[in-house]
């Protein structure tokens, strides 16, 4: 049941991404200039940095783990963007036993890198 719901969310989500790309493309952003969202995505997918795919299914990510919930419709899950950032900065605040690494508190990622990941995850 939950599975079906997230599938639907996932496809709704891909529509949003495609629309996003279409909107950006004509505005003439140079290929060299990565948007914050793109930077965040690269960090999230990098095995040595965010490596979020180790535990979360994310649209477009191959061989995801299933330890954490799929990252979908994040704006609905986190109306408050700061709460999303807090989860990534230090997962142990909400759940002291969380297996999710406290990316900010343990300096796994810098504050700027976390901001970029937040923008990316918020676009999901």
């Amino acid at each position: 049941m939950r599975h079906t719901a997230s599938k639907i969310l996932l496809s709704a989500c891909s529509v949003a991404v495609i629309t996003g790309t279409l909107l950006i493309a004509p505005s003439g952003a140079s290929a060299a200039e990565e948007t914050t969202v793109e930077k965040g995505k690269a960090l999230a997918f990098d095995r040595k940095l965010g490596n979020c795919l180790a535990c979360h299914a994310i649209e477009g990510g191959e061989l995801p783990g299933n330890i954490g919930p799929p990252l979908v419709s994040m704006k609905l899950r986190f109306p408050d963007k700061e709460a999303l950032r807090a989860q990534i900065y230090d997962s142990n605040v909400r759940n002291p036993n969380s297996i999710m690494p406290p990316f900010g508190r343990f300096n796994i990622l810098s504050g700027e890198q976390i901001d970029q990941i937040v923008e990316y995850v918020y676009s999901l």
């Binding site: 795919l53 180790a54 535990c55 061989l63 995801p64 783990g65 299933n66 330890i67 036993n97 297996i99």
Partner: peptide, 9 residues
Amino acid sequence: HNSGNKIRA
């Protein structure tokens, strides 16, 4: 806690 789950593949 996560035995039987997947971490990546």
